[in-house]
Design a binder for these strands. Sequence first.
DNA 1: CGCTAGGTGCAAATGATTTTCACATCAATG
DNA 2: CATTGATGTGAAAATCATTTGCACCTAGCG
Lengths: 149, 149
Amino acid sequence: MARTRQRTPNEVALIGRHTQQRSVVLAAFIRADGFVGAQALHSQLAADGTPVGLSTVYRTLTRLADAGRADLVRDPGGERLFRYRPGPDHRHYLICTECGLNRPVDSGPIEDWADGIAQDSGFAHVRHTVELSGVCPDCGRAPATAERR
Amino acid sequence: MARTRQRTPNEVALIGRHTQQRSVVLAAFIRADGFVGAQALHSQLAADGTPVGLSTVYRTLTRLADAGRADLVRDPGGERLFRYRPGPDHRHYLICTECGLNRPVDSGPIEDWADGIAQDSGFAHVRHTVELSGVCPDCGRAPATAERR
DNA sequence: CGCTAGGTGCAAATGATTTTCACATCAATG
DNA sequence: CATTGATGTGAAAATCATTTGCACCTAGCG
Ligand SMILES: [Mn+2]
Ligand SMILES: [Mn+2]
Ligand SMILES: [Zn+2]
Ligand SMILES: [Zn+2]
């Protein structure tokens, strides 16, 4: 039992050196449990009393995504939204454009479809992006009065 | 040279008043026959000797997209790429990340899949984004030397 | 023609993300 | 433990695609 400092999710190891900031960012990111933008996470951290530089938040999220520990989508406004992903498989989500509620969908069919296309096309390294968005039942019920974002 | 005073592709009508600029932009856009960014189109127009303000190019492409006459995807760098679409149905493409070559794919399966998800989810106004990218046979064959775009 | 809602094109403004760079911290090493 | 080269951090400036403000045009209808 080596006595290594354990107070941080070992995920940090995957993206380089272990630092206070990374622990904090990662913890908040996981806690967010949904898609978050770097800006939002940065604000959240400040609110939590554990401020971290915006640059660092960006760097951390980007690295996580590169390391395959986060799913990434584009906000209609062009903002990058990240979502923590514990497992190795990527997922696809149905996101409510009104409240942000999101739920993973059964994407088996598209995965197969995409694989088929890749196969037949002759293209190599075929990757795919699939995003579903709409208005969730709750937001659909309450008219335009629904809470904004 | 000869300023081809032209037949207004009636498409122009769909997006408002008919102007010299819109004709030119639309013509170049159609001629591009593939995904183009506003910037690239703007440069192309200048090179063609029919310069149009960048703002106007942006405005025109945006309107076409809103009118449903163009498909829109996001470049990995975040840039918006448009592709002219004559018909009413949207399409999905497999794009070569090396040379830009793109071909529409048979998306029947995903359309059905997406409809099913929408159905079961209870969400309203469900929309989807599906993008496939990879390296085309030609580019796969020739190293990184492949012609850009 | 004459008028006006709608267009155009600069330049300046936005806004998200990146980079710069002086300074702090990590972690391996002796 | 102290040293030290590699890394990480953050405030501010830089990027970059896209938008907007605004003074100036122009379709297009009567
Ligand atoms: Mn997938
Ligand atoms: Mn579709
Ligand atoms: Zn909702
Ligand atoms: Zn190619």
